[in-house]
Design a protein around this nucleic acid. Structure first.
Lengths: 341, 341
DNA sequence: GTGAAAGCGCTAACAG
DNA sequence: CTGTTAGCGCTTTCAC
């Protein structure tokens, strides 16, 4: 039976209960070294009986090994990072490693703080979103002496390794597809987030590719807070009332794009004939909407997976030859809202 | 400057760099006890200069204090738990405590494993979803000697404290509202998840309240995997083709409900006149859909907040009088898909 | 196959 | 205000 004593049990308790030395108990519990089958079962059953739970704090200190991987992301509330986490989990499940998540709310200072907190637990590796960090954060990553993978974005120089897509290129590709389909009067809607560097880079790539063909964005609007779907509706309505000449709307994420799509349908406006639409992300959630929004897959699952693989591989063999710059290529899906050519 | 040495710095390094004893350095870094302003600044600047990051592993072992709260939830991928986490975070941000998240995928064995892993880090408290756990898990929670709050559900007996809503009652209330509105031919759609006890309890409460008025569910369907929105469409179509006499559809979550709503609109079926609809959860995401689905708020943010408050209060003063059974009352919102009476 | 001793990096508890 | 001494619970290392 388990007892409800105040003090958690220690190896010593198990040792005393079995008459086996602490050392051997430790060996049994960790499956390390040879232990006779007899003592092994004795120890195991005693540990179970007593309800012994090992103290990883002490173990980590003594062995100087912490099987934790810090995963630092900006947000949990838009489905893209949870999906990255799923990818990370999938890979780490097959190892001794365990992810620990920290959230920064897109604030550099908070990122710095979260990173500091996490590093103080001496994790075995760090997976962190983005390539932009405070100088102090970069310094910490540099001197931590553990594998570091920066994820999501590859437009920049990583501290160590990076896995992601080029958001600049993603913006460019979408612009090209839109122009190729014949649209010329383009509006843009996105989040009001100066610190979302990836959205910024997509936007830059987008305008750059348009400019190359002599096209400029004719209207734009940014939002913050609230339900993205509703905001998409509102912004789309406002923009079309203001700029009725527009024939294409590019949204910085699929949720507001979906809101726009629903609005246009309500209005009986023909999509993609009269107006074309595109978003970004490939949100699976939206499958099932009356019409499929054109979008671009951000490879979130693969990013998480690959990042975890790099960490795991590097810990397994620090001298292994590992590809440290992984750029995935997002695929564009035309859906029902962007004419094909 | 920070150095890129292999070995992480220790207190001793800072001590040697300043000529101040380790103990005093420790005091400065933790803001504990009186230290002269002079040594204080000297230590602080040296620590910063060297890039010292404290080792919480060692600190925790020595002080027998770990400022971690284990938060164990079934899933990250449906927006309800991230929202609970947000509530937890909001409260813990104002304390020394830090949440660490574990995910169980709705599997009892995995829950047991995750719990074991987390307890082995000797957290200061546990917040865990649901009241149903394996016997071993319950034993661990019992003997951990730390505050435990079971969340989401209050239909059962908690190990220690609980915060949530009564899902049985939620199901009953919705049934009553539906009957009161005059609907009599009711179909049900939900996830195929024998282990989602809360969905099960809602269903039980629902059928029970119907039965009291002599009404039975006339058709039902369960799904698993895939995009909920799309599944909602498909299931709704299938069910209405099979059972055209239905005048109300009750969905176990808002996403499939929204899919159903979109399908009915496509078909030009009048809602809530010809058919009424209701979901569960109050997903903010869906604001912005052409019509608002009737639903019931699950109080997710409040649950997270309250649970964290209980943990924090209990740690601050173990003898404080704390309400350990908190039942929140979900409010029903009729939206545009359930006739009012 | 098993055990004894030493310490991981820090902090509690004292002593000055 | 500052320093000294003992551990925290485990694992490493070496001895048997």
């Amino acid at each position: 039976m388990t007892t409800d004593s105040k003090r958690p049990l220690t190896l010593r308790d198990v040792s005393e209960a079995t008459g086996v030395s602490e050392m051997t108990v430790s060996r049994v519990l960790r499956n390390r070294g040879d232990v006779s089958e007899k003592t092994r079962t004795k120890v195991l059953s005693a540990a179970k009986e007593l309800g012994y739970v090992p103290n990883k704090i002490a173990g980590a200190l003594a062995s100087n090994r912490v099987n934790l991987v810090a995963v630092i992301i900006p947000s949990l509330s838009n489905m893209v990072f949870p999906e990255v986490l799923t990818g990370v989990n999938k890979v780490l499940e097959n190892t001794e490693l365990q992810p620990v998540v920290g959230v920064t709310d897109y604030q550099p200072e908070k990122e710095e703080k979260v990173l500091y907190e996490m590093l103080s637990w001496r994790p075995s590796g760090v997976i962190i979103a983005g390539l932009e960090h405070t100088e102090a954060a970069r310094a910490m990553l540099n001197s931590a002496g553990i594998p570091v993978v920066e994820i999501m974005d590859t437009d920049g120089k990583p501290v160590d390794a990076m896995v992601g897509i080029s958001h600049r290129r993603a913006g460019r590709e979408m612009a090209k597809a839109i122009l190729k389909a014949g649209y010329r009067h383009i509006g843009f809607m996105g989040t009001k987030m100066p610190l979302d560097h990836r959205a910024r880079k997509r936007f830059e790539g987008f305008t750059e590719a348009l400019a190359k063909e002599g096209v400029e964005i004719e209207d734009r609007e940014f939002y913050s807070g609230g339900s993205a779907l509703a905001k998409g509706r509102e912004m789309t309505q406002a923009m079309l009332e203001r700029s009725p000449e527009l024939d294409f709307l590019y949204y910085s994420n699929d949720m507001i794009g979906a809101g726009g799509l629903l609005y246009l349908q309500d209005q009986g406006i023909s999509v993609p004939g009269q107006i074309g639409l595109a978003g970004f992300n490939g949100v699976e959630l939206l499958q099932g909407l009356p019409r499929k929004l054109a979008t671009m897959d951000a490879c979130r699952l693969d990013i998480g997976r690959k990042a975890a693989e790099i960490i795991a591989a590097q810990l397994e063999d620090p001298d292994a030859e590992i590809e440290k710059h992984v750029t995935l290529t997002p695929t564009i899906s035309f859906g029902d809202t962007l004419k094909r050519r």
